[in-house]
């Protein structure tokens, strides 16, 4: 048995980087997809509305673990062998997109209908209404729940460990397999997740307070 030592700690600390990278990829991809889905959900086209609603329902009803399996093992059966980071990034993007799409739809719809009417009466077209009136107000409403959801995403990246992507959780497993010190190892892993997520939670609460006061 190998003693749990500084080398292990450094190995785990270095894996934090991949958890952060995966979180950022998931968030960037998910934000783009989520915005498109949110706009489609409130569009005038029945087809777009139905498609985005179906997508959101389907993905929200599927465990992230299964999405990861599909992206990694499923696609490789079809001949697309993705690197673990790419597969995990893809699965998380699809997942985050569905949730952000639904959160942001709610925020767009939370802007009072009278804002649409007033800007319509001034002659703004639909694009101008979104760009200058609706989205700037929706973003204020959306900031706290979005930051809150980021915390979930960071923690959910741990599932990528099952397809062999060596992020924080997987690194912990590897170290534990050689040292058999689960308590030490996973307390360290948990503390590192906390160190990433806590600032986000604090930021979320601070934003909420700030935006509430401003309105």
């Amino acid at each position: 048995m190998i003693q749990f030592g500084p080398a292990h700690v450094i190995y785990i600390l270095e894996a934090v980087r991949w958890t952060v990278v995966l979180s950022l990829v998931a968030f960037a991809g998910g934000a783009v997809l989520g915005l498109l889905l949110a706009l489609a959900r409130v569009s005038r086209s029945i087809l777009l509305r139905a498609f985005s609603a179906a997508y959101i329902q389907t993905v929200q009803g599927t465990p992230l673990l299964i999405l990861l399996f599909l992206a990694y093992f499923g696609l490789s059966l079809l001949g697309y062998r993705l690197a673990p980071l790419v597969a995990a990034g893809l699965a998380l993007t699809l997942y985050v997109g569905a949730f952000l799409g639904e959160i942001w739809r709610g925020c767009i719809q939370a802007v009072p209908r009278t804002q649409w009417e007033a800007s319509d009466c001034l002659g703004l077209n639909r694009f101008q209404q979104y760009a200058y009136i609706i989205l700037p107000q929706a973003i204020r409403i959306a900031t706290p729940p979005t930051v809150g959801f980021m915390v979930q995403v960071v923690k959910n990246t741990s599932l990528a460990s099952v397809i062999g992507f060596v992020e924080l959780t997987r690194a912990g497993q590897i170290v534990n397999n050689s040292t058999f010190q689960p308590l030490m190892v996973f307390i360290l892993v948990a503390a590192l997740y906390f160190a990433i997520c806590y600032p986000l939670s604090v930021a979320s609460r601070a934003l909420e307070r700030k935006l509430n006061v401003a309105r």
Partner: peptide
């Protein structure tokens, strides 16, 4: 657009853009 150019409207709840 033609209608909007010629007709203005003011509402009970003002509906200014708060941002």
């Amino acid at each position: 657009a033609d209608l909007r150019r010629d007709v203005g409207m003011v509402f009970q709840s003002y509906n200014l853009f708060p941002h």
